[in-house]
Design a binder for these strands. Structure first.
Lengths: 188, 188, 188, 188
DNA sequence: CATGAATGAGCCTTCATTCAT
DNA sequence: AATGAATGAAGGCTCATTCAT
């Protein structure tokens, strides 16, 4: 008795992502989540053991999607690869914001959360390493300035993702536009 | 008359700023704050009527400092002014992050908070208008690319502030470096 | 489904009534209430959203019971009706005292409380109007003194309810006794 | 240094009386009181050791004034004396309401409060005894009905004080009117 | 398994009272 | 004395989590 309405893990994480982005880690709570899902609040515990596991799973899923695409990248042409990477990142442009609270997740007492966060961190590392590798290659090929230290190149590029798309340009064009600005600078 | 205060408003706001940046609006709480100040939690209510007033006052103070410097700027040479503006912003590089939760502040029932937030908003507006003005001028003087829409120029510039200074370059040099990258781009 | 409730809304309101009468609006608090109920203080919030809603619901329930009886009254014989009305009031003799704090209830931010208090007020009005109607009729039928203004008649009658029943006479007899004194006066 | 503004005990008790009547024992607090007095909240402790002592002193003063007048009464003509007594009570018609919270006063830990409340109780007793004496005399002189038990006579009379003076008749007339109703009843 | 109820820990805020100037 | 600051003990309310049906 009792099986009435249900939803998939994926749906749960979709809502979670939206709500965490809207309210932040501390502002997100299970009452809020349950209001955006069918069924009772306590039912959520059938899916995840606690709040931290939900958020950890959410973070993992988001970065895993990015990672998958990034890992499949053809890196032979470094500049082209960077362009495509920017595109990949922009499709998940809230990545940074979402993951910025990863450190708040209480991983003691929850194995699942701990594993997910470890995955997030290693994925993060992978992305940084990949980016550094591409930049190094590009610098060796004299494609990008050498008077700028590599970490600065990486930081600037990574940060470009967050540029507010105030005119709501569609992602592919937005990606191209940002890449151009990033490459060519603002100067005439 | 009366006892002398254990700490100043300014000290309280300093700690608040640090903690709000660390924990966000929802993660910040008065127990936490009191743990970073001498004395009891309830003492804080001698300084501010409630949590929202504290955070509002904190936000106001931070943006007021930026506004003061920005308003004193000599705008005759637009590119030089932009360079200096970047410098001003970088000195308070967490500005964006700090103010991003301003909308969460409950201004009903707290006049002081409402006024502070109104100030924050008007200061924000001033900065946006100033930046737009400088970019417009620079574009008219053919100093910056015209194939990039003005709002994108503004957004990119504003976003540069958040570039992580991973090598901990001192602010003046960091400012110059970013300005160069912003102007000249990454390309060789 | 779910656990069964430890106590009913009705039980909660019974206790509330007693405690509000004993301690008044300000003296009544949820810790006190929970001490007279099984379970934890926070459980009460499963039943009502806040203190004001509890007291408002309590007031409503009490006056609703009085109103129901009063509305069912046969008013054709005005003096008889008044006698019965006194009886009805005496069965809920603490009505006045209980409702005297209605104005303290914070109705902003609590819709349920607002509605309940509105009901209480309209019920109050009904009772006043009914009483005035009966007195007017009685005066026209020359049953009661005309040298006394109507509002004074009403006030005196209404106030009779509060006469302390120090000898603990059972309500029906007490009601008759008071009615006689009210009608005939103290004089021999 | 420091002596700036002051006020008399009497002024303090005047305000206290008004505020206790307005807000009740639990709703009355020292912040409220200090807002209606010159000077700081803590200054009040120069006058009274704690909240309970203030309210106790207030209650004592009010009933003492009534007691003084009542004790000076010429009781030779019982009916006339009762008329005058009603007048005395009506001049302090909130007496009941004010004293109804006397039991809430925490007399442990405050000798002054304990003594004041003891005085209040003995004054209360004196008034009841006096009233009973007058009624007994009146009954013996066949001035008032003998079919009504003495305590009921007393209770009804005492309760007449609370009749709401909705038309704001001046006290002397109001007193006469009530006395008439009390004596003659409502009946034509 | 789904659910509504129960719960304790935690945060916000108020207030009587004390302290130090 | 008078005062402003400090404080701990409530009391209001929320929320993650557990329990019993």
């Amino acid at each position: 008795m009792g099986r009435k309405q249900s939803y998939s893990h994926s749906e749960l994480l979709d809502i979670t992502k939206r709500l965490v982005l809207e309210h932040g880690y501390d502002g997100f709570n299970l009452k809020l989540l349950s209001q955006h899902l069918p069924g009772a609040r306590s039912t959520i515990y059938q899916y995840y053991a606690n709040k931290d596991e939900i958020i950890a799973a959410c973070m993992k899923r988001v970065i895993a999607a990015v990672l998958e695409k990034a890992a499949a990248l053809d890196e032979s042409d470094s500049m082209r690869a960077l362009q495509e990477l920017l595109n990949i990142y922009l499709e998940e442009f809230q990545l940074h914001q979402l993951l910025s609270d990863a450190y708040k997740i209480k991983t003691t007492s929850s194995d699942a959360a701990r594993k997910d966060i470890e995955y997030v961190e290693s994925a993060h590392d992978f992305l940084k390493v990949q980016l550094t590798r591409l930049f190094q290659k590009a610098q060796q090929e004299k494609q990008i300035r050498e008077d700028i230290p590599l970490p600065v190149h990486v930081g600037v590029f990574f940060n470009f993702i967050n540029t507010p798309n105030m005119m709501n340009v569609p992602v592919p064009e937005w990606s191209k536009m940002l890449f151009q600005v990033w490459m060519g600078g603002a100067k005439k």
